[in-house]
């Protein structure tokens, strides 16, 4: 059983839940940017939640199946079609040998997750099938898919598990509200700059990908004056190169914040204001360029409560599907 790539879309990669354990070498965790959608796609086709799927951004691929399979598409609103006929997202459907899966135009969100029963069976590299394109590691030949690629699919997978209604899904609001725990080098900016950072409505910049999302349209930061420490560099936003947490918000030159995501650069020389909490990282994966967003200050207790909420939301989907 295989999936043939007829056309690849804009940038379609193989992703699972990621590759933890190598960040100290500069190899990021990778994996789906919207892991909630990735898990649900797998649940719908009867896979383990962490099986490898395809992540398509902004534009869907066209795929041909060599054998019957169960398929589900979740995440952003990228309408699936089988041989040109509409199918529902967030819902399992069947394909036969020779069927073609294609997609209409993106109507909402940014990334769709395409799960196939049995999972995409590319070689496991450092414990994961996820693609890290910058390091040419994992996935299909370490890169985004191209026309003519053929992907093996693992055996098994069931008849499909029904559908997930809209009230059990999660998409960013308008503006998106990204909860953030201030910290790291937050003390480097003035308190007025800190207040303004949360007051501003930002817009996703065109430079938004799996490494990180840049935001623009807010107020430039005022730094607390200091003599720059040895080795840091001359700009007030410079620090001695340090580790960058996932979700950390760096502000090169104090102008445009960048939130690092699943293919993060693991370190560098820019100060960070804190991190978007883990519970809201999925939302960033569904933001298109120009989408408005605000950063909302939370405490550690609120971060942990949000985390518990996300786990409960996932459990509600499992319960609904009878898993």
């Amino acid at each position: 059983m295989a999936v043939k790539v007829i056309s690849p879309g804009l940038s379609t990669t193989v992703q699972d839940l990621g590759r933890p354990g190598y960040y100290h070498l500069g190899i990021p965790i990778s994996g789906g940017m919207d892991r909630f959608a990735l898990r649900v796609a797998n649940m719908l086709v009867g896979n383990d939640e962490g099986a490898a799927v395809l992540e398509a951004v902004f534009m869907g691929p066209e795929l041909e199946f060599t054998a019957p399979a169960t398929v589900a598409v979740t995440g952003g609103d990228l309408p699936p079609k089988v041989n040109g006929e509409d199918r529902d997202s967030w819902s399992a459907f069947q394909v036969k040998a020779g069927d073609r899966l294609s997609f209409g135009f993106l109507k909402g969100g940014a990334r769709a997750y395409i799960a196939v029963s049995g999972g995409i069976d590319v070689p496991v590299k450092l414990g994961s099938r996820s693609t890290y394109t910058l390091g040419a590691l994992g996935g299909h030949e370490g890169r985004a898919l191209k026309a003519g690629d053929e992907l093996a699919v693992g055996g098994g997978g069931g008849p499909g598990k029904g559908a997930v209604p809209a009230n059990l899904r999660r998409m960013p609001g308008n503006p998106a509200e990204l909860r953030m725990l201030p910290g790291l080098y937050w003390h480097r900016i003035t308190s007025a700059a800190g207040k303004q950072f949360f007051a501003d409505t930002w817009k996703v910049a065109p430079e938004a990908d799996r490494i990180g999302y840049r935001f623009k349209g807010g107020t430039a930061l005022d730094f607390v004056p200091r003599e720059q420490p040895f080795g840091a560099g001359s700009n007030p936003s410079n620090i001695v190169d340090a580790c960058y947490p996932y979700g950390s918000i760096q502000v090169p030159g104090g102008t445009e914040p960048i939130v690092l995501h699943r293919d993060a650069v693991s370190g560098g020389g820019y100060m960070m204001l804190g991190c978007v909490i883990a519970a809201d990282m999925d939302l960033i994966g569904q933001l298109q360029p120009h989408a408005p967003a605000r950063f909302v200050e939370v405490t550690m207790d609120q971060s942990l409560a949000a985390r518990a909420d996300r786990q409960a939301a996932l459990q509600r989907v499992r319960d609904h599907l009878g898993l």
Binding site: G183, C243, S248, G274
Partner: peptide
Amino acid sequence: FSFGGDEHIFAEVSESMSL
């Protein structure tokens, strides 16, 4: 020490570089 969100602790030994 400073928390980086709910999944990281960041620890700055020194602001300036030295062995």
